Simulated scan of single mutants.
Amino acid sequence: MASSIQQSARVYRMKTAEHMCPFGLKTVDLLKRKGFTVDDHTLTSRDEVDTFKEKERVDSTPQVYIGDSRIGGYEELRKHLGMSVPNANETTYRPVLAIFAVALLIGLSINWAVQGSLLTARTPEFVFSTAMVLLGLQKIQDVESFSNMFLNYDLLAQRYVPYSYFYPYAETLAGLLMLAGALIWLAAPLALFVGTVGAASVFKAVYIDKRELKCACVGGNSNVPLGFVSLTENLVMIAMGLWMLLRILPG
């Protein structure tokens, strides 16, 4: 890895009235944070950009030069500095873990506002019902993309396609009703039903059929692998359905 101490770098990046290149800004920021003195050249028109590309025989901007060497764009700079390169196609659990983490914080906040304490008997209800709402919201943003991915593994949706459109709204509705403590006679069976079908579908696809699929748990076009986390989402709905039913049963 090249040392960045007391080195200077030249950056050529697009900055027009119509477009501020985000990778150009990231490139300049990264160089400065690594101790480089940056000679920042902004290309302020399409003609300037095209002229630069033709002259340097490159296909894109930004372009970084350290000394007499052309390093390349933002990703090439990260590699040059020994840093990892973000990969939008890499499988990751981060989206769903982020949702559960935020749901925990929201649940604790609601509990504090309603009960005057962070931890009470209702804390799990607030946390998990919030998680259901957030997960449902991710799916509702693009129901068509969700349904396309969901149909790869859900057993009921494969037999009755409209269920793939029903599922996101059912999950969201059940979570909202549980969060409000209203119409539990509807919310609990709904959560139990979609959770049980979902858990069975994920278990069969992953642990019996050994299929490597992407999970639709955070909406369509996600890179979350179908497996333990997606199974957990459905088990949470089952647990919430059973718990809420026990709360409303007499005696």
Rank of each mutant, 00 (worst) to 15 (best):
Q141G: 02
D154T: 01
L183T: 07
Y163D: 05
I140Q: 04
R159D: 00
Y153R: 03
L151Y: 13
I184E: 07
G175E: 03
D142L: 08
V143N: 09
Y163Q: 07
E144K: 14
A174T: 12
A174G: 15
E171N: 10
Y165T: 10
Y167Q: 02
E171M: 13
D154P: 11
A182T: 08
L183H: 10
L177D: 07
D142R: 10
L151T: 11
Y153T: 02
L135V: 07
P168H: 15
T172E: 04
Y160F: 15
F166C: 08
L137H: 06
S147E: 13
L177S: 11
Y163C: 04
L156R: 01
F166M: 08
L183R: 04
A170V: 10
L176V: 11
A182L: 13
P162Q: 01
E171T: 09
K139N: 08
Y169S: 13
F166I: 06
Y167L: 05
A182K: 12
M178A: 01
M149R: 14
V143M: 09
L151S: 13
T172W: 09
N148D: 05
F150V: 00
G175L: 10
A157W: 00
M149L: 15
K139M: 10
F150P: 03
Q158E: 08
A157V: 00
G175R: 06
M178I: 01
G175D: 02
A170W: 08
G175M: 08
L155N: 14
S145K: 15
P162C: 07
S145H: 14
S147F: 08
S147M: 12
D142M: 04
W185H: 04
A170T: 01
L179V: 06
L183Y: 13
N152L: 09
S164N: 11
A170F: 05
A174R: 11
Y153Q: 07
S164L: 02
G136I: 05
F146H: 13
T172I: 06
L179I: 02
Q138P: 12
L151C: 13
S164P: 10
I184D: 06
A174L: 12
P162N: 08
Y153H: 11
Q138V: 11
V143C: 11
L179S: 04
G136N: 01
D142Y: 10
A174D: 11
S145C: 13
D154C: 04
K139A: 05
F166S: 01
N152I: 00
D154E: 12
A174P: 13
L135F: 11
L183C: 03
A180C: 14
G181I: 06
I140V: 05
L135Y: 04
G181T: 10
V161P: 14
W185R: 05
I140L: 09
V161D: 12
L177K: 07
V161L: 12
L134F: 02
Q158F: 00
L134R: 00
F150R: 05
W185D: 00
L151K: 13
Q141W: 06
F150E: 00
Q141C: 02
S164T: 00
R159G: 00
M178F: 01
K139Q: 06
F146V: 07
T172D: 02
G175Q: 07
E171C: 03
G181P: 07
V133L: 12
E171I: 08
L183P: 09
P162R: 02
M149W: 13
N148V: 06
